[in-house]
Design a protein around this nucleic acid. Structure first.
Length: 810
RNA sequence: GGGGGCGUGGCGGAAUCGGCAGACGCACCGGACUUAAAAUCCGGGUCCUGAAAAGGAGUGUGGGUUCGAGUCCCACCGCCCCUACCA
């Protein structure tokens, strides 16, 4: 017998480096292009190159890698790319603080992180890497922009925008967070500013974006997107303002029109000044000014008392011809509906509050139940005080009123969305230049495809001034009109970086392709993404934008499907040891490198998967990784250390456990249950070590082969070591996933649980195919059961085949 | 105010279909090895009573359905996340 040389010390780092070198040398992770196999495009969200890989990156990427490896072993050709989301504010801010050019800062971070990514031992296809700040990439951002412009999806408009006074840039609505409405990046409260901005008509796709039938995404993301899009059905109704003309309101309750006793406009409504009567103009102007100065925090405080000012004007209620007073009040927002409302205090609490404060009439148009004691009534009930609607239920009354308004030409059924068009202009340096030229003669002219990319000038002054940095760069700014050749000016804003991440999954397919954003042949071979993994925090931003993008691409004829990613899985967040979110200020940030150096990548990978359910996240436990490291060392010792001796182990049990393990791993991996899968591998390791040297060699080798194959997706280096330690040929990662035999999992002997009145009293070993009658007899004859049934009437006995007998006594 | 999620040992968690609660791991305790410690190996381990055998209680609280509930139903309490004057 040849004795395997015992390994004196366990040195995972050297072991892992050795295998990583061999993987690179043999090109193990070059993407398999064998079209005989079914395809699987596995995508993990691309990282921002912030400097070093964070443990959060490990938490997001290594389980994704494990899943991709599993799919690969199941006979798929798998594409698993990685890249860098390299434009954006942090680079620019870091650059400003340290006086380094954003490009240099970003590129050096990328170089650093590339090395760290390789240490993960993931099956990333590094050859298809994409870096979004590379002109080779952002050229196609510009190309898309031009296409969108030609199609009318991109347009320019003056709009009040959310503006961060610290970062000196506009923010998309999604980038303004919290009840205080602060900048997502720096926490500064945002202010409103009027600027000419480029927008994308995502609202044109609102209806389609509400359709999730073609994707399998988590309920939660669907709900978040649905709420974000915020579809409301109702009606637009015209109210005639004396001496001015009609003003439209949007309401979800056209049935309550007879109860509209006043009319309210947002302070920002363009008609406010025109309708205000001279005697009220002073008060209204003061109110509007005050509202404008108020911070968003105060303005949107729900608990604040309602305020407003009477304009002196009256509007005509189209249902009954009555004149109702017109107020301006800041509880009506310009950004939703039409910026004006019909106020129905009887059925809306906000209107009720306002009406009581300003002593305005309240008319109920829905009969509340007798015991109703609240103020505004929003529940079901028959219409009252509503002429031809009286007696109708809410839904019927709505319909009737809309029909009536349509006949009168005073209104129509309408749908309103909370979703706004996507504002993509940013007054910053480090982004994709918007490829537009403004010419006095030709107007707004897109840069022709042959002149793309519009290069970001290298030596711009990027210190924020509130103006676009590119505006200060005369060489960039002044150009020729592509259309007439005359003097013209370039657009100096850059694009929101969500533009970059909206289509990166397509660029991965052919990162150097220069005839389009991606090579259609490659697309046909790999698209769409089969499995996407990433954080839930992107639910209403990136994940909505990329869906929108794909739909526009479809309408441009670039792809022939409707959704970018068929399946999505959201991992949770890895927290600090104190169970709080990791942050520098808390001092609870975990540096993965320390743990890679000490325990190796496989240990860190497995630990992160073992910690708990992947979608749940959880606190980091620095000591917990020791246990996982111990497991890997023990697993390795299955092939490296001397053999124990003793009585022969049960070969049937070995078969059963091995098949059970493969089944468990298969089911868990399919469902992303990495934690219980790792636990099963640990259990098997413990068992195998216990019987080592006590089973027939061939059986042992077979069990170990399957163990190594099962371990491969989780701990790719250790699995390789075990695999070759068994004398198998390189590489374990090119093997087929082992199958399992259900019939071998079943045992001949079962543990029959005996309960009396539902309480456990005994466990009896019995044959698996025991009959109901024998089982009951066996149960009743048990020494431990007898005292609990003696002297009592046995009412019945329940038998659950293969599991238990429950004796019911009274 | 609205929407969603979650409450299981000292800790992270397991229990996939209503059927042995606490798999696996951490921490802890005991033993072996060692001059000693670390590492490693073996064993213990929800709580209460008991020397033990055994018994009792137990999955946030209270009720219900069921032969049987961590799991299903009702009410409540607590925590977390998202969202918020959306007409």
């Amino acid at each position: 017998m040849s004795e395997t040389k015992p390994r004196k010390t366990y040195d995972p780092t050297t072991l892992e480096q050795r295998w990583q070198e061999q993987w690179t040398e043999s090109g193990l992770y070059q993407t398999d292009e064998d079209t005989e196999k079914p395809k699987h495009y596995a995508l993990t969200m691309l990282p921002y190159p912030s400097g070093d890989l964070h443990v959060g990156h490990w938490y997001a990427m290594t389980p994704s890698d494990t899943r991709a490896r599993f799919v690969r072993m199941n006979g798929y050709r798998v594409f698993f790319p990685i890249g860098f989301d390299a434009f954006g504010l942090p680079a620019e801010n870091a650059a400003i603080n340290r006086g380094i050019h954003p490009y240099k800062w970003t590129i050096s971070n990328i170089e650093n992180m590339r090395g760290q990514l390789r240490q993960m031992g993931a099956m990333f296809d590094f050859d298809s890497e994409v870096v979004t700040c590379d002109p080779e990439y952002y050229k196609w951002n510009q190309w898309f922009f031009v296409k969108f412009f030609e199609k009318g999806i991109a347009y320019r408009d003056y709009a009040p925008v959310d503006w961060c006074p610290k970062d000196n840039t506009t923010l998309a609505r999604e980038q303004v967070v919290g009840p205080d409405r602060v900048c997502e990046r720096c926490g500064t409260p945002v202010i409103k500013k009027d600027l000419a901005q480029w927008l994308f008509r995502i609202t044109d796709y609102a209806e389609e974006l509400l359709d999730f039938s073609k994707i399998e995404w988590p309920e939660r993301v669907e709900t978040l997107q649905r709420n974000w899009i915020g579809r409301s059905e109702g009606a637009e109704i015209e109210f005639e303002i004396e001496g001015y003309g009609p003003i439209e309101v949007f309401t979800t309750r056209p049935d309550t029109l007879f109860g509209a006793t006043f009319f309210v406009m947002s302070p920002e409504h363009p008609a406010v000044e025109k309708i205000t009567t001279p005697d009220q103009s002073e008060a209204v102007r003061a109110y509007v000014e005050k509202a404008g100065k108020m911070t968003e925090i105060d303005r949107t405080d729900v608990t604040r008392e309602k305020t407003g000012a009477f304009t002196g004007a009256y509007a005509v209620n189209p249902a009954n011809g009555k004149e109702i007073p017109v107020y301006v009040a800041d509880y009506v927002l310009m950004g939703y509906g039409t910026g004006a409302i019909m106020a129905v205090p009887g059925q809306d609490q906000r209107d009720w509050d306002f009406a009581t404060k300003y002593d305005l009439p309240i008319i109920r148009t829905v009969q509340p139940p007798e015991d109703f004691e609240g103020e505004a009534y929003v529940g079901e009930g028959p219409a009252i005080n509503s002429d031809f609607l009286d007696g109708l239920g809410i839904e019927a009354a709505k319909k009737r009123m809309v029909d009536h308004l349509e006949e009168q030409g005073k209104g129509r059924a309408a749908v309103t969305y909370r979703l706004h068009d996507w504002l993509i202009s940013r007054q910053r340096y480090w982004g994709t230049p918007i490829p537009i030229v403004y010419c006095d003669d030709c107007g707004t002219v897109p840069v022709p495809e042959k002149d793309l990319p519009v290069l970001l000038p290298e030596d711009a002054e990027f210190t924020p001034t509130g103006e676009s940095p590119l505006k200060l760069d005369e060489e960039f700014r002044y150009t020729e009109c592509p259309s007439c050749g005359g003097p013209a000016e370039r657009e100096t804003d850059t694009m929101d970086t969500f533009m970059d991440s909206s289509w990166y999954q397509y660029r991965y397919l052919s990162p150097h392709y220069d005839e389009g954003p991606f090579d259609p042949e490659r697309g046909a071979k790999w698209l769409p993404v089969d499995q996407y993994t990433g954080g839930i925090e992107h639910a209403v931003m990136h994940l909505l934008y990329t869906r929108f993008f794909t739909k526009v691409m479809r309408d441009l004829g670039l792809v022939d499907f409707d959704e970018p990613m068929k399946k999505l899985f959201n991992q949770g967040i890895i927290l600090g040891e104190d169970a709080e979110k990791m942050s520098k200020s808390r001092g609870n940030v975990v540096n993965p490198q320390e743990f890679v150096d000490r325990y190796g990548s496989d240990a860190l990978r497995c630990f992160l998967m073992f910690i708990g359910p992947w979608n749940q996240g959880g606190p980091w436990d620095g000591r917990g990784i020791e246990g996982v490291s111990r497991f890997l060392r023990r697993a390795l010792s299955l092939v490296t250390e001397g053999e124990a001796t003793g009585a022969e182990a049960d070969p049937g049990e070995l078969d059963r456990r091995t098949n059970q393990l493969v089944k468990k791993l298969t089911e868990d991996l399919e469902a992303f249950r990495f934690n219980t899968a790792v636990a099963a591998l640990m259990e098997q390791t413990n068992y195998l070590l216990g019987i080592k040297g006590r089973v027939e060699e061939e059986k042992w080798a077979e069990a170990l082969r399957k163990f190594a194959l099962g371990l491969a997706p989780f701990a790719p280096h250790h699995a390789e070591e075990i695999w070759t330690g068994l004398g198998e040929t390189y590489s374990v990662h090119e093997q087929e996933w082992p199958g399992f035999d259900e019939s071998l999992i079943k045992t001949e002997e079962i543990t029959l649980v005996v309960q009396v009145n539902g309480k456990l009293r005994d466990r009896i070993e019995a044959p698996a195919d025991i009959s109901e009658e024998t089982a009951k007899e066996l149960a009743l004859s048990s020494e431990k059961v007898r005292p609990h049934v003696e002297g009592k009437e046995i009412r019945k006995a329940i038998y659950v085949p293969g599991r238990l007998v429950n004796i019911v006594v009274g």
